[in-house]
Design a protein around this nucleic acid. Structure first.
Lengths: 166, 166
DNA sequence: GCGAATCATCTTGTTCTCAGACGATCGGTG
DNA sequence: CACCGATCGTCTGAGAACAAGATGATTCGC
């Protein structure tokens, strides 16, 4: 396969040696999702990560912001600026945790909740776009498996007991 | 669910509002994979991306380095340094493409091939670790679906015809 | 042959990330 | 109650990653 541009070949297949690589496959899928989600994200302060913080706050698992930072894989000092942005936009509010005044619980506001559902509606379309080549059954099985994997990670990675967050 | 550390709760479930978010699920899975693959990667010049370049070269789809850069999602000027590192380690060699002397084909060396298969053996274990909670059937279906998605992306994203690379 | 375009490279300026320091607060010990 | 270590949120500075333009070599259409 030395000649570069042959007449008929027009499809860019993934490299053979990476077809079984979970990291490659996930990264490609994630890149595609990010591209598809870009238009929905550009109105969101803090971009994709701002949205994730918002979703965590709405799910009631943001009792302290360090916990959220760990879960999102961002540094704690980055989280500070991120929350500043979200707070300036009026989407969340930092409230001191009465039981431990060192911590700040991240409370989502009414505007934040509205914005969150709006964004998630648009993100569903991005998901549909990425998962378009799958049949309905394949799609459900795929998401089920993905969810199983992530749920299993959550309870295996962090040995110290953490607060359950529905 | 206001109290933070209750007596019984010890499981960190994913946030409710993100359970259906493909981006979140993929990102979590990818993060776990990266963590599991870290020990295998630290001996690899250029880290994860060095490995990806090596795999692309071994698959014969590295006729010019800009193509590889696009596929990996890295900037072309980053690719220069990345290839310098790999070349210094003796894993690949830049060879001028005889049909178009502007391009440099990235040729994998014998040492590079050996290193690649060694790394991939270790990466298989990382994949097994992440996919551990799935049954064998689920696992195969999951990887099949993932592969379908990525293959479909490859031919839908890039409208201009590219060289097929098996 | 000549101008436009492309590839690889280098350089520069901006942005992001990471590690440490610091004040405020909690928990336990005596 | 006063101390001591640890934790949380915040800030700051150094280092790395990234994006964008300029350059030289080369190819392609006309």
């Amino acid at each position: 396969m030395t000649p570069s541009r042959s007449a008929t070949a027009a499809i860019a297949e993934p490299p053979e040696r990476l077809k079984a690589d979970l990291g490659w496959l996930c990264a490609q899928t994630l890149m595609a999702y990010r591209r598809a989600a870009e238009p929905a994200m550009e109105t969101m302060p803090g971009g994709m990560r701002g949205y994730l913080v918002l979703a965590a706050a709405a799910s009631g698992c943001a009792n302290n912001q360090l916990e959220v930072a760990r879960r999102l894989g961002v540094d704690r000092s980055v989280m500070v600026g991120l929350l500043d942005t979200l707070e300036d936009a009026g989407l969340v509010a930092r409230k001191p945790n009465p039981t431990d005044r060192r911590e700040r619980t991240i409370a989502i506001t009414a505007a934040g909740n509205k914005r969150l559902t709006a964004i998630q509606t648009r993100l569903e379309r991005a998901t549909e776009h990425v998962l378009a080549p799958l049949s309905a059954g394949q799609r459900d099985g795929f998401l089920d498996a993905l969810h199983t994997v992530v749920a299993h990670l959550a309870l295996s990675e962090t040995s110290p007991p953490m607060d359950g967050c529905a």
